[in-house]
C-alpha cells in the first residue's frame, strides 16, 4: 500500500529558536496519527507546515493527489495548494471561531466549500448542508441559525461538518476537543471516531490530551522541544513509554 502522506526531514525555525526539527513519517490511507507533547514543543508548527499554512525551511511533504499521484505540496503552486486544502484536505481548528464564518448561517458555512468548488444549485447545496448537519447531530431546523447562536460543542461539530462536506481524504486537527467540557468532549470524540471509520479518513491530530489520542489515534508521535522523541503504536507508547519525557507525560495524567 502506498502512503497517502510522506513527510521527510521537515524543519522550521523562528530565527534561532527551533519550531520543529527534522520530522519524517508516513501516513497511510485510513490511518489516524496523533502528535502529542507539551505547549511549545512544536506540534502546531509542524501541523501548520504540513497543512501549507507555514512554509518549512527544509524538507518535503508529499501528498498522494487524485490526479497526479505523489506531489510535493511545498513546491507546488499556491493555487494548487489552496485547491487541495478546499477539496482533499480539511483543517479543524482548536477554536471553532477560527474555522467558521460567524456571520454566516450554519447552512452557508457548510455550503461554502461546495460553492468554492463550483456547486451552483441552491437546492442541492442546501440538501447536502442539512444532511451533514444531521450527521454531526445538529438539528435540521438550526440550518439558518448563525454559529454565534450555537454552543461551543455545536460550533465544533459544525466546523467538522463544514470541513468534511467535500469528502476530504486527509484531516488536520489542532486540539479539536480543547476548551470543551468532558461530556461534550466525549460525544465529539465518539462522533469523530465514527466519521473517521465510516469515511476511511486519514487524520493527523495534534493534542496535549492523551485520552484523545488513546481513543482516536492508531499511531503516536511524541514531540519535545521541536524534536520527535518517540513514535509507535498508540497503546504501545502509552502503556510502555521508553523515552524519559514520554514517561513523564504519561505519569502526569491526573487520575480521577
Amino acid at each position: 500500500m502506498n502512503p497517502l502522506l510522506n513527510v521527510t526531514g521537515v524543519s522550521k525555525s523562528y530565527g534561532d529558536r527551533i519550531g520543529c526539527k527534522d520530522v519524517s513519517f508516513d501516513l497511510y490511507p485510513g490511518e489516524v496519527m496523533g502528535i502529542v507533547g507539551e505547549s511549545g514543543s512544536g506540534k502546531s508548527t509542524l501541523l501548520s507546515c504540513l497543512a501549507g499554512h507555514l512554509g518549512p525551511d527544509t524538507g518535503a511533504v508529499n501528498f498522494d493527489t487524485r490526479i497526479a499521484g505523489m506531489r510535493d505540496t511545498i513546491t507546488m503552486s499556491e493555487p494548487e495548494r489552496r485547491m487541495l486544502s478546499r477539496t482533499d484536505w480539511a483543517f479543524v481548528h482548536q477554536h471553532a471561531r477560527d474555522g467558521l464564518r460567524m456571520n454566516v448561517s450554519a447552512g452557508g458555512n457548510v455550503g461554502e466549500r461546495l460553492m468554492a468548488v463550483g456547486a451552483r444549485h441552491y437546492g442541492e447545496i442546501r440538501e447536502q448542508a442539512i444532511d451533514w448537519l444531521s450527521r454531526v447531530e445538529i438539528n435540521a431546523d438550526r440550518v439558518d441559525d448563525r454559529p454565534s447562536a450555537f454552543s461551543g460543542g455545536m460550533q465544533q461539530r459544525l466546523q467538522i461538518a463544514r470541513n468534511l462536506v467535500t469528502g476530504p481524504r486527509l484531516v488536520f486537527m489542532d486540539e479539536p476537543t480543547g476548551g470543551l467540557d468532558v461530556s461534550v468532549q466525549a460525544r465529539l470524540l465518539d462522533l469523530l471516531r465514527g466519521l473517521v471509520r465510516e469515511m476511511n479518513l486519514s487524520a493527523i491530530i495534534v493534542t496535549h490530551d492523551l485520552a484523545v489520542v488513546r481513543l482516536l489515534a492508531d499511531r503516536l508521535m511524541v514531540m519535545k522541544d521541536g524534536h520527535v522523541v518517540e513514535t509507535g503504536l498508540t497503546d504501545q507508547v502509552l502503556d510502555d513509554p521508553q523515552h524519559g519525557y514520554t514517561q513523564l507525560l504519561v505519569s502526569s495524567v491526573l487520575q480521577v
Binding site: 493555487p79 464564518r101 448561517s105 447552512g107 452557508g108 460553492m115 468554492a116 451552483r120 441552491y122
Partner: peptide, 18 residues
C-alpha cells in the same frame, strides 16, 4: 488573483435562506 469566488455565492445563499 486566484479566482476564488465561492464566497460570493455564500452571500447569495444567505439571501435565499433568509
Amino acid at each position: 488573483s486566484l479566482e476564488e469566488y465561492g464566497l460570493m455565492h455564500v452571500k447569495l445563499y444567505e439571501d435565499i435562506s433568509q
